[in-house]
């Protein structure tokens, strides 16, 4: 109980709300650290996943790669990224941002599997009949993808993006291990200095940010999904007057 009092006091301390170590600044860093790799992963994995889902080609290969990628611990991805790329980043003159770039690259790879898999599954699961109808009506491949497969598969596709986003926001914390800013600093520095109120407060903020991300993306999903695809309102209703069976 005393501990929770300390955590509350930590939050109440104005010093923790100001300056480069303050909560707003750390949240800002954390968001930059998260949004950049997420956006990059969406830009790469969405089109690739969608195209694979559309054509059905290379699907096994890519899904297996994604599954293996998912099985590698985030920390290992971060260590690998540092080991393989940090030197190059320094050499091309980005030394001051090397930690951030390494972390973003690791988060980028972390975000790829769910986005790729769901984009593939979302498109692939679109009813063949609908696709056939589109083709029979004279849609080109890209028109089928853009006007039919993507909007119909959108709920599944967006779940992939949401999963990736939550994962990235939660995992961006690890960047503190390689000297980035962000909310991970509270946790890593707190542990190093045995300030467990700060550790707990940092974890709380990360959790809150993850939940906010989850809710935000759920909201976007609802807004972006056609009402025709929602689970509710799907019971067929007889609207025409010609509803009575053929007899009296």
């Amino acid at each position: 109980m005393e501990f929770f009092g300390e955590v509350a006091a930590w939050f109440a301390d104005p010093a923790n709300w100001n300056g480069p170590d303050g909560i707003p600044a750390r949240i800002g860093e954390h968001l930059v650290l998260s949004i950049v790799p997420l956006a990059a992963a969406v830009a790469v994995a969405l089109p690739v996943g969608a195209w694979i889902g559309h054509t059905g080609r290379f699907s096994n290969l890519v899904i297996n790669i994604a599954n293996v990628g998912r099985a590698i611990p985030s920390l290992a991805i971060l260590a690998l990224a540092a080991m393989l790329l940090q030197r190059t980043i320094v050499d091309i003159g980005l030394r001051d941002s090397a930690s951030e770039i390494v972390t973003m690259i690791a988060l980028f790879f972390l975000a790829i599997p769910p986005i790729l898999t769901n984009a593939y599954v979302g498109i692939n699961e679109v009813d063949d009949q609908i696709v056939e109808a589109g083709r029979g009506m004279g849609m080109r491949d890209l028109e089928i993808l853009r006007r039919v497969e993507i909007p119909v598969g959108l709920p599944v596709i967006l779940v992939g993006v949401r999963t990736a986003a939550v994962q990235v926001v939660a995992t961006a914390t690890l960047g503190a291990v390689v000297a980035t800013g962000g909310l991970g600093r509270y946790i890593i520095d707190g542990i190093a200095q045995r300030r467990f109120d700060e550790v707990f407060a940092g974890a709380l903020i990360v959790a809150a940010l993850s939940i906010a991300t989850e809710l935000g993306f759920s909201f976007i999903e609802r807004r972006a999904t056609s009402p025709g695809l929602r689970g509710r309102d799907t019971a067929p209703r007889e609207l025409a007057q010609a509803g009575r069976p053929g007899g009296i």
């Binding site: 260590a79 540092a82 030197r87 030394r95 930690s99 291990v177 390689v178 000297a179 890593i188 190093a192």
Partner: peptide, 19 residues
């Protein structure tokens, strides 16, 4: 200062890579 835990692999890597 860049903040890395002492005696740890990341800081050794960062030193080697010139961060």
């Amino acid at each position: 200062i860049e903040q890395y835990a002492a005696c740890d692999a990341p800081v050794a890597q960062a030193l080697n890579d010139g961060v």
